[in-house]
Design a protein around this nucleic acid. Structure first.
Lengths: 113, 113
DNA sequence: CTAAACCATGGACTATGGTCCATGGTCAAG
DNA sequence: CTTGACCATGGACCATAGTCCATGGTTTAG
């Protein structure tokens, strides 16, 4: 699977895919042909990119996603405790919400001075 | 008032002050001496930097703060409608809160699947 | 066979808010 | 009179998540 195919399969731009690749977030990319240096992004990277996009929706950063992917790669049999990871992210999001609420209250105080 | 004095008066680093200056956020900076090229940041910039820091606490970006400062500079007599500006910022903050709440709900759905 | 579409690589650029460093000049205290 | 503290300038760098461009090589459709 060449990068264009992968791009169409995932709806993610070629450049973004190359960006993920440069960050070491993709796996098993080969260069199967001797006469050109085209890469073969395997089927697995479709799921991988879908997972990246999925976790981004939960406001995970690429750095965090990369760590999770590497954890999974290192322990392929062991299941990652999703709940734990999500709970940590939840705390961060709740802290952000609280912070914004405080800012909101501060603004409201001034508006209604 | 040299930059070091201004820095101590405001608690803002020299580099940050130079950064604000480079963005055109400060005013009336002169070079009163012929024998060196030291600048004189006037007293006004103390208040100005305090205002920058104040507005940053309300999550205004430097770009926005700059615009407000320029508005004020252009119409020194006319009072800026703070309330209007703050209400706009409030809307943005509330949208962010809502977005984070949605993300929180999505995470909770998965945790309690 | 040729033109368009694709591929790889590397680097520059976007916004945000600064920090850190090097260079070279100046000022003040002892 | 020398040393340390200060000043100005410019550029590089940090995280974040990519996009866009140029260059040069390859593949594919008509």
């Amino acid at each position: 699977m060449k990068i264009g195919t992968l791009s169409k399969a995932t709806g993610v731009s070629r450049d973004a895919i190359r960006f993920y690749e440069s960050k070491g977030m993709l796996t098993n990319i080969t260069r199967p042909f001797e006469w050109n240096n085209y890469k073969d992004y395997g089927d697995k990277n479709v799921k991988r990119i879908q997972l990246i996009k999925h976790l981004q929706r939960f406001s995970f950063t690429l750095r965090e996603i990369k760590e999770l992917l590497h954890l999974k790669d290192a322990n392929p049999n062991e299941c990652i405790d999703k709940t734990k990871v999500l709970k940590e992210k939840l705390k961060i999001i709740e802290r952000k919400i609280d912070e914004l609420k405080r800012t909101r209250e501060d603004i409201l105080k001034i508006i209604n001075h």
